[in-house]
Amino acid sequence: MKRLCLIMSFYFSFSVCTGMISIFSWIVVDAPLFGDFWHFLKGYFLMKIASDLVMWYYLRSNNPDRLFFYFNLSISELRLFVTAFALDILAFLVFMFFVHLVNFLK
């Protein structure tokens, strides 16, 4: 649990940026909902993998020493970024769930 909280705090440090990328990409393709949204998801995952890899590279090259904070707590770089990626996807899906709910109730 402590580890998950740590990784979440790591994710929150750049979550606004990655969240904006997710929402922007959804708006760019005309904000699909319901059936169209499932078609959007496939491309979305590929786009997120690419953008999160860029984010990984950016964080690694700009402040690699920051990772020692997590290494000292026995959290590997791979675990850190893969979990942050999963949280990023989950956050967008939760957001989209509420968007669908609001549209469904309209």
Partner: peptide, 11 residues
Amino acid sequence: YLPQVPFAPKG
């Protein structure tokens, strides 16, 4: 390990 530069996250 203590690196040469600050390693703790902000906040």
